[in-house]
Design a binder for these strands. Structure first.
Length: 285
DNA sequence: TTTCAGGTGGTGC
DNA sequence: GCACCACCTGAA
């Protein structure tokens, strides 16, 4: 494979934007970091981001990616301060969660990639999901070139996944989820489904639309709505969140009703902040 | 060697 | 509508 072509450099302001928190909170799977250097694959571009005192310097390789694409991908055009202020005023825990997660942004990722990635996330954990996605990209994705000897691949398009046999899809750690990936890709191709449809739907209707795919239930649908379709009302409920809602608010059932009333306009941001906060407390013991 | 974590889909009530 | 279980694999 050839060396990936350098396509230019962008700079991003660090004000109210923390790249580490943004890629470390479980919303994306194609980013890694070592110290202040981050590497990720976004569509057909490889991004190498270096954190400096007052800004992030982004080198683009592979296909070009404009500054505005980058701004949109990391949701940098949204002013988070009013959201933070509303959430911080709710209670002490949210206040601490906002303080610890300050700068965490809701990413806007490609619908097909997000759909398949979160199908893989069911009954699974982040390191394994990442392994599987890299294996799928290597087998079915477009080669983007090498950087320092390492090969990078785009996330697979729908067509090769739809055409692949279950044996071919049986990559590392995928397990029974190969069937869900296959069914979903086949359905999109055979029924010529337009994945941009949920952008125009309410969160409720979008959830129903996404659940037409085998392997997509309430939680996975809400992740896709939040991380690809910019539905801030979506609130993915997994076992962590259930425990958190029980511990912090004594909520045992009807989670969605509580969420709608308590987090008002920003359930998605609240969910990410609380998830990040709880997980960090857990990791620190 | 065994056990566990983690959503969805299906079955049976 | 709710309760239960199979599904698969890496990590502990």
């Amino acid at each position: 494979m050839k060396e990936a072509k350098y396509q230019g450099t962008h700079h991003l302001e660090k004000s109210n934007f923390d790249l580490f928190k943004t890629i470390d909170c479980g919303q994306c799977f194609r980013w890694s970091h070592k110290g202040e250097r981050f590497i990720g694959v976004v569509n057909k571009s490889i991004l190498v981001i270096v954190e400096e005192a007052s800004q992030y310097t982004v080198d683009v390789y592979g296909s070009p990616l404009s500054k505005s694409d980058l701004q949109h991908y990391f949701d940098l055009d949204t002013d988070y301060e009013p959201i933070y202020n509303v959430l911080m005023a709710r209670d002490e825990t949210l206040k601490k969660a906002v303080e610890s997660g300050w700068g965490l942004r809701m990413m806007h990722q490609a619908p097909f990639e997000t759909l398949i990635s979160f199908i893989l996330s069911s009954n699974n954990n982040i390191p394994k999901i990442k392994m599987t996605i890299e294996a799928l990209a290597e087998r079915f994705g477009e080669p983007l070139g090498t950087l320092e000897g390492q090969a990078f691949y785009a996330f697979p398009e729908v067509q090769p996944l739809a055409e692949a046999s279950l044996e071919a899809l049986n990559v590392k750690a995928i397990g029974y989820r190969a069937k869900s990936v296959s069914f979903t890709a086949k359905k999109i191709v055979e029924e010529s489904l337009d994945l941009s449809v949920p952008f125009a739907l309410s969160a409720e209707a979008g959830r129903t639309w996404l659940k037409q795919f085998y392997g997509v239930g309430d939680k996975v649908a809400d992740c896709i709505l939040l991380f690809a379709y910019e539905k801030e009302e979506a609130f993915p409920i997994d076992t962590w969140v259930k425990k958190m809602l029980m511990t912090l608010y004594g909520v045992e059932k009807n989670h969605m009703d509580f969420i709608k009333h308590y987090f008002i306009a920003y359930p998605g941001v609240a969910q990410q902040l609380l998830f990040y906060y709880i997980r960090n407390i857990q990791n620190k013991g």
